[in-house]
Amino acid sequence: MASDLMIHTKGLTKRYDEFVAVDRISFDVHRGEVVGFLGPNGAGKSTTMRILTCFISATDGVAKVHGFDVFEEPLEVRKRIGYLPQRAPLYPEMTVHEYLDFCGDLRQLASGETRKKAVRRVVEVCGLRSFYTKEIRNLSHGQRQRVGLGQALLHDPSLLILDEPTADLDPNEKREFLTYLRDIGENRTVILSTHNISEVEYACTRTLIISNKDGKGGRIAADGPIEAIRAGSGTVRYQVAAGASAEGTLPTAAQLRDALSAVKGATSVRELAAPDARAVKAEVVGSKDADIRRDLRDAIAGKGWDLLELRRELPPLEDVFRELTLGSDRRDRAAAA
């Protein structure tokens, strides 16, 4: 196994009686990658993370962290990872200082100057200074989340596994934290599960989308850099904005939609909010293999309207995520809404 291979999973499966939570997941993560683990609720993100951190065992398949099998050598794995579970569960009766000290003891961090330096670093990075001596029971959700992050970073692990780490942070704290993750990701490995696509776009070099579409067990639906996932969806979007005709008549949204829908290769058309009252805007979805910009232009010109904007672009990650993770019934409901 290559030395920079931090995580290796093959055919990872977790079953609870008849229910399949994770279904034959295989992926590798290398040193220096910041991986966004995206998926809807119940898709198996947390289950996969719990297997990787040796909290639960897989029913089938292989999972190795730093080359150590999570089932055979759990202690070696746990020594090398920093883990923050969902909702940062902490002991409320302890102060932040006592809690970090307790974690330092369990992680066998040398006492004295080394320990002090490690604590000072996480206090600084996670912004714990103002409530360092307070009992955890008196902290806000966001502050607790930061303490949870602190314990995960305390031993300076080369692999961080974070389950929705930004759930309780305010927008400023989120941005600071994600910037920090992006920075440390240069020589460490981070797996970050989240529902928030913009966080993945901001901080992650790679995205893993896990889906339990149509009630099946969680499977990897997409894996790669964000641009590659967007390109791999097979569709493109055209942003079209039309202005008034020579007679000064502005098309209605329905008229524009009908005109664009008639273009060969336009699979769907939806109205968009126009930037001002002098334009009507729509988005056309078409195949990635064809370029229908000329046809769209001709359709606008044919109606005598003024073409104000025409842009071809890859679909946003959010649309790809919906495409990959929404079951057919939910997709129909979403479309109807």
């Binding site: 202690l75 883990y83 902490l90 369990l106 314990q151």
Partner: peptide, 13 residues
């Protein structure tokens, strides 16, 4: 409270 998850995933048997 879920603290068992953090405790058990520390390097402790």
């Amino acid at each position: 409270t879920g603290t068992i998850e953090l405790l058990i995933t520390m390097p402790v048997r």
